[in-house]
């Protein structure tokens, strides 16, 4: 696997907007962003409504994912290109989710919506929704090798690499959520003992594009992450850590990396687990 298999430039997307086997999909933290405007011929996946079970805290099941992609007109052999706002946080989350259910060819638009906008590239009005014929999408069972659960995290303390990708202020316990969200939260602040704080933002340039493979490798080496060990990445709800998972697993080719989607909103609410405060 190489960078070009999973990451495409804005120019590449521009050249493939009318390619029927390439489906551009917008996945935004702000699920209404698509309604304002979006890349021409892009379809929307709503990370809350489409990707989460409506009752339990969990993902839609395999049949639910099949129904979603079928309705969106995405076929098993389509190339799916994901993009979104906030430096591709939720597009990365969707990338990981597509891989969890075994989609073959899925890629990220490097820099996401922000880079596209900062380049002053064309966006179409929100009402311009493409019509794609429904498919009969077949998903695979969830790939448990890339998803961590709370017991995996507790067992990994002091044993595996734990990478906390939140901002230093969330890691230390000064903030309970990213600073564009209100801070009142029910969970305890802090981080998992033995976790290294390597904010997701260190993976990216200001314009949201990913740093080079050499820069990324140097980043994790400088932070003393032993990539020969198993690694679990987490953040608050698993979207920023999906971006770090993308870097470690997809760009740097580490096979032993899991994303903990329960992340701090689950861990910080567990009774009796160890928590550390401060830097």
């Amino acid at each position: 696997m190489s960078r070009s298999d999973v990451l495409v430039s804005a120019d590449w997307v521009q050249d493939h907007l009318d390619d029927p086997k390439v489906v551009v999909v917008e996945v935004d933290e702000d699920t209404a962003a698509y309604d304002k405007n979006h890349i021409r011929n892009a379809v929307r996946i709503d990370w809350k409504k489409d990707l989460q079970d409506p009752v339990r805290r969990d993902f839609v099941d395999q049949a639910g994912f099949e129904a979603l992609l079928s309705a969106k007109g995405i076929a098993n052999d389509d190339t799916v290109v994901l993009y979104g706002g906030n430096n591709n946080w939720f597009a990365s989350y969707a990338f990981w989710y597509f891989k969890l259910y075994g989609h073959g060819d899925v890629r990220l638009l490097d820099g996401g919506r922000k880079k596209w906008e900062l380049d002053s590239r064309d966006l179409v009005d929100g009402s311009a929704v493409p019509e794609r014929a429904a498919t009969e999408y077949k998903a695979q069972a969830q790939d448990s090798s890339i998803r961590a659960f709370r017991d995996d995290v507790v067992a990994a303390i002091g044993v595996q690499n734990l990478v906390d990708v939140r901002s230093p202020d969330e890691f230390s316990g000064r903030l309970l959520a990213p600073a564009h969200l209100p801070q009142e939260q029910s969970q305890r602040p802090g981080h998992v003992p033995s976790a290294r704080n390597i904010p997701w933002s260190k993976n990216a340039n200001d314009d949201g594009t990913f740093k080079s493979d050499e820069e990324l490798k140097a980043l994790y080496e400088a932070e003393n992450v032993d990539l020969s060990k198993d690694t679990i990445a987490y953040c608050r709800i698993g979207e920023r850590s999906a971006l770090t998972w993308f870097v470690l697993h997809q760009l740097l080719g580490q096979t032993n990396v899991k994303n903990y989607d329960g992340s701090w909103t689950e861990y910080g609410s567990l009774v009796g687990v160890p928590i550390e405060l401060g830097n």
Binding site: S167, P168, D169, A179, H180
Partner: peptide, 24 residues
Amino acid sequence: LDEGGEFTAEVPTSATGQFRFFAA
């Protein structure tokens, strides 16, 4: 960005150019 220059959050500006953060 925090005191160390590290990224903490990012928002798009609104149609009227406005933004807001909940910091410490």
